[in-house]
């Protein structure tokens, strides 16, 4: 133990680097975020509750969280499928497909937004085939779900993929030797190992969807009570110089993000325990 401590002190620069890290973190992130909390505390409890539970605000929660939930579920299913196919099967262009999965991270949200709105509008590439079927995507909550699916897509793939890569061959061989069918192996052996990472990916994708703004507003239609997402409502309040309203709603959103962050951390702890 003592040796370890002395060992630790050989490298220089601990004080300076940690000091700068904490300073920069405080100036850029912690103090500004605390401004939001303090400003909210300037409201009375009654004011706060009335603001954040106004009908228009409640409707925006419903649209935002509902769409994010559906989008994250779609991503959980297809994300696992994509990760599985990328790790286990060989097909031409696999590496390019693998790299392309991160496109929603790299493509600016405004570009994604105007593009999705154009493709799914009634005379767009996809929209024109959906319209005769009575399916309207652009300017409806369905469009919001679609945009959230797009931006959340990489999360599940990228959390599940490394876990599939690390599954030991022996695990599956043992299952087969013990008489399990392929389906039983997948369901009883592989799936429990993947579950924590699937849930982590789901939570990350959901959290991203809830906070997303740029890729959604172009396709959403932004009708109050119908297709207005909470982040947009914050901006609307701000543009009307209703700082109190904007701050209160933002505080609710911030608390939700903290809650999601906590969930993700717990899930990751759980998955690490599984690995050991």
């Amino acid at each position: 133990m003592k040796l370890f401590k002395r060992h630790n002190n050989v490298l220089p620069g601990f004080g300076v680097t940690l000091g700068f890290t904490v300073f920069y973190l405080s100036v850029i992130v912690l103090i500004p975020l605390s401004a939001l909390v303090f400003r909210t505390m300037g409201l009375t409890w009654g004011e706060f509750i009335t603001t954040v539970t106004a009908p228009r605000v409640l409707a925006s929660y419903k649209v935002t969280f509902g769409a994010a939930l559906i989008a994250a579920s779609i991503n959980a299913v297809f994300g696992v499928l994509v990760a599985w196919v990328l790790v286990r099967y060989k097909f031409p262009g696999r590496r390019i497909v693998d790299a392309l999965v991160d496109l929603p991270f790299a493509l600016p949200t405004a570009v994604a937004g105007i593009t999705l709105a154009t493709i799914y509008s009634s005379n767009g590439w996809v929209g024109r085939y959906l319209e005769p079927l009575g399916i309207k995507v652009a300017f409806t909550p369905l469009g919001i779900t679609l945009a959230m699916t797009f931006i959340g897509l990489p999360f599940v793939v990228r959390t599940v993929q490394p876990v599939i890569e690390e599954i030991e061959v022996e695990l599956e061989e043992a299952a087969v030797c013990l008489g399990a069918s392929r389906w039983q192996t997948l369901y009883r052996v592989i799936f429990p190992v993947l579950l924590p990472s699937i849930l982590t990916g789901f939570a990350l994708s959901f959290a991203r969807g809830v906070g997303e703004y740029g890729s959604i507003i172009f396709i959403a239609g932004n009708m109050p009570m119908v297709s207005e997402i909470t982040p947009l409502l914050i901006i609307t309040k701000l543009e009307q110089f209703d700082y109190r309203g904007a701050t209160a709603i933002a505080c609710v959103m911030l608390l939700t993000s903290f809650l999601m962050l906590l969930v993700v951390n717990l899930l990751q702890k759980w998955s690490r325990r599984y690995a050991e």
């Binding site: 973190l25 939001l36 703004y213 701000l238 700082y243 701050t247 993000s257 962050l261």
Partner: peptide, 28 residues
Amino acid sequence: LITLIDLPFSVSPVISGLIYVLIFGLQG
């Protein structure tokens, strides 16, 4: 510390802008 460094990724972009308005804006 690691969690705090990751924090900006979990905050909605709209809030990331709003916090600076609350500090430096006219009513800030």
